[in-house]
Amino acid sequence: MQDAKKPTVTGGRTVMSDFDSSAAVFKSRAKKLATLMATGEERAKLWRPDELAAMFRHQMSAPMLVDLGTFDPRTATRLRTLSEAQGLLLKSFADLFHHPAPPIELLELIKDFAKANLDHPESGLPDEIATTLYYTSIAAALIRLDAHISQLPDADLQCGLRWTMEQAWLDDKTKELLAKALEKISGGQKGTVP
């Protein structure tokens, strides 16, 4: 079988490469064919655990409108209005979480976005990323606005915040936000940043 050419990126545009799929299939043993057949299964994970750090970095730097703009048109319009009012139109999830006065509606939208991904069986977003967005939005509301945007009991909230803080791929600034939130709902007991 001919070797596949390596793809090249020219000016940001991907140059497609050749791959003789027929030759690849006919020279392969059963194990590789079985792996290919399993590809269509929805339950197969898309991403490896070691990719979570890169994915979270990407998520935090992604413009909010990219993900949150997939809500219904009315919500998308509201999102744009709020973002523009706060000069956050082109800003990222990280900028929102660490803004001194983030719009509470935006934090609620992110919480809902995260929950929707966790609840949807066909969501491709790793649960770890969705869970982190969920608890970080709650933490930001609690610390920046002294507002509760979740109806979770404190014990469950503590558990979730603690789990999120323990993720090795989380950046320090987000861990600190979560630690402060944990401290606040724990009645002054300090949340320790791992």
Partner: peptide, 9 residues
């Protein structure tokens, strides 16, 4: 040129 993890997924 993927815009977010959701886009990638």
């Amino acid at each position: 040129g993927l815009k977010s993890p959701t886009d990638a997924s």
